[in-house]
Design a binder for these strands. Structure first.
Length: 483
RNA sequence: GGCGACGUAGCCAAGUGGUAAGGCGGAGGUCUGCAAAACCUCUAUGCAGCGGUUCAAAUCCGCUCGUCGCCUCCA
């Protein structure tokens, strides 16, 4: 399996520090607002990578932090006249509610910055003792000059950065690039006691402290979006390695942006759609199809057309699944059939689909290509379906259908594309509804047999009005709920 | 100004040396009482442009043009 590593700028063979264990940290949200679809891309990508690593047999310990204290939270609290803590609690709940809708699994742990203050103090203390940090008026700064390889993650050097010259001019800092590990409290701001006076943590120190505390001094994967490479991850790396003397992260992964009109979606530009706005228009499955339709490192444009495309594409796969399910039922295939009696050619194709899928995902998580395999399976399902029509008695062909259906479901699951994410509110697997539908279908069948198409069409039209579609197949009539 | 990424059909998007995956959309056809769904066929002699290397280039090299990103909080 190959993974693109930001720090080496090339795809590398993935070899965990202590295989099969994988320690994985994803930079989580700052909980001050609804997250936008661009944030969602990061969460979905990390979740997908986690799932695939597990599928590949790795024992993944996956941690994603919650930044529950920072400038934006304090600002929001002032605007709304509530405490910073209340803001954080509100949007933490929103985070779990919305990611739940998207079928994003919760991490093994979601550490909060405010619950890891002692760990940050310890880290800062070590940095001061080792001469990598210094105290000024209750602030503590990290000295970038004290860490020789500063800049190697982002491919920058200190001199170039200073020529860029847009860094805050603060006379108290030894170097303009030095960044705050601990910020002295200003009046009215939330504050925690510390050896340097009351204050709150700098942004970068949180992730270092929580990663070290909950995963260890050296981990396998640390991920985030590309705008975190500098300064966030650069600073994390510097302070962590300066403190522990050990490599902080083996593989740095960064996902590309979600764009609007070819421009980065961002809160500051105001060109963003929050996740709840998007979910009002599109079902979670379509949203995930869209987010996985391009390689994770490439930019992806959020447009109505692209969303509609993703929706149609996901429908194609759902339709095939539903059709094959109903056909299997009509033909009374053994529920516990293993697919082993499927014809040789079908089993060969099955193996091949899986191989191509794995090759795609093994190549730096190429979900766009992996999705094309799902479509290929759908095509194969339809072809097999046709063969079943021509030879309804051939149980082996039905078994092949089942084989493909199961594979499709499994691969969808690995990508986090559970078909139930697309469903509406009504539980259409409800037994009574199924029986009622069967009654209607049987009555319509009688009408059609008598060529009474007025009644037959009335039934179909009325059902269509409540979003239920009837399809007459050679093997019988099936019904579907359309969204 | 420094560093980096990208430019493949109407749209989206794989493909990093061997002769252009897949999806969406569109056109025609098959099936059907009619539909729906599905299937079949067609939809890039071409990969921003110009040079170069090679038996062979979307893929490697150089230049040009264009777009975007990071350098400041940002997923």
């Amino acid at each position: 399996m190959k993974i693109y590593n930001t720090i080496t700028r090339e795809k590398e063979e993935f070899v965990p520090l202590n295989s099969p264990h994988v320690l994985y940290y994803n930079c989580g949200p700052t909980v001050y607002d609804y997250f936008h679809i661009g944030n969602a891309r990061n969460f979905v990508v990390a979740d997908t990578i986690r799932r695939y690593l597990e599928y590949r047999g790795f024992k993944v310990r996956f941690i994603q932090n919650l930044t529950d204290i920072d400038d934006k939270i304090i600002k929001k609290a002032k605007e709304e006249g509530i405490t910073a803590k209340e803001v954080a609690e509100k949007y933490t709940a929103v985070y779990f509610e919305q990611t739940g809708k998207l079928g994003i699994r919760t991490a093994d742990m979601h550490p909060k910055a405010t619950e890891n203050i002692p760990q940050m103090h310890a880290l800062i203390k070590t940095l001061i003792e080792k001469g990598h940090a210094y105290v000024v008026d209750g602030d503590v700064y990290f000295s970038v000059r004290s860490f020789p390889s500063y800049g190697s993650l982002s491919g920058k050097n200190i001199e170039d950065l200073q020529e860029g010259a847009r860094v805050d001019v603060d006379e108290r800092k030894k170097d303009p690039l030095d960044f705050a590990l601990w910020k002295a409290a200003k009046p009215g701001e939330p504050a925690w006691e510390s050896p340097w006076g009351p204050g709150r943590p700098g942004w970068h120190i949180e992730c270092s402290a929580m990663s070290i505390a909950h995963l260890g001094e050296s981990i396998d994967i640390h991920s985030g979006a590309t705008d975190l490479i500098f300064p966030h991850h650069e600073n994390e790396r510097a302070q962590s390695e300066a403190a522990t003397g050990k490599p902080f992260v083996k593989y740095w992964l960064h996902n590309g942006f979600l764009n609007i009109n070819n421009q980065k979606m961002s809160k500051s530009l105001g060109n963003f759609f929050t996740i709840n706005q998007v979910l009002e228009r599109y079902d979670p499955l379509s949203v995930k199809f869209f987010l996985l339709s391009a390689h994770y490192r490439h930019p992806l444009d959020y447009t109505e057309e692209n969303m509609a495309t993703a929706q149609s594409a996901s429908r194609r796969i759902l339709n095939a699944l539903e059709t094959v399910d109903k056909l299997i039922k009509i033909n009374a295939v053994q529920e516990n059939s293993t697919g082993l009696s499927a014809p040789e050619f079908a089993r060969e194709k099955w193996v091949n689909f899986r191989r191509v899928f794995e090759d795609a995902m093994d190549d730096d998580f190429n979900t766009a290509k992996a999705l094309s395999v799902l479509h290929d399976i759908v095509s194969e399902i339809h072809e097999t379906r046709k063969a079943v029509s021509n030879a309804p008695q051939d149980a082996a062909l039905l078994d092949a259908l089942k084989l493909y259906r199961n594979l499709l479901l499994e691969l969808l699951g690995i990508l986090g594309l559970d078909p139930t994410l697309a469903s509406g509110k009504v539980d259409f697997n409800d037994k009574i509804i199924g029986e009622l539908m069967q009654i209607l279908i049987d009555i319509r069948k009688l009408a059609r047999a008598k060529k009474d198409f007025i009644i037959a069409d009335e039934i179909r039209n009325r059902l269509n009005n409540i979003s239920i579609t009837l399809e007459d197949h050679p093997q019988g009539t099936i019904w579907k709920h359309k969204k």
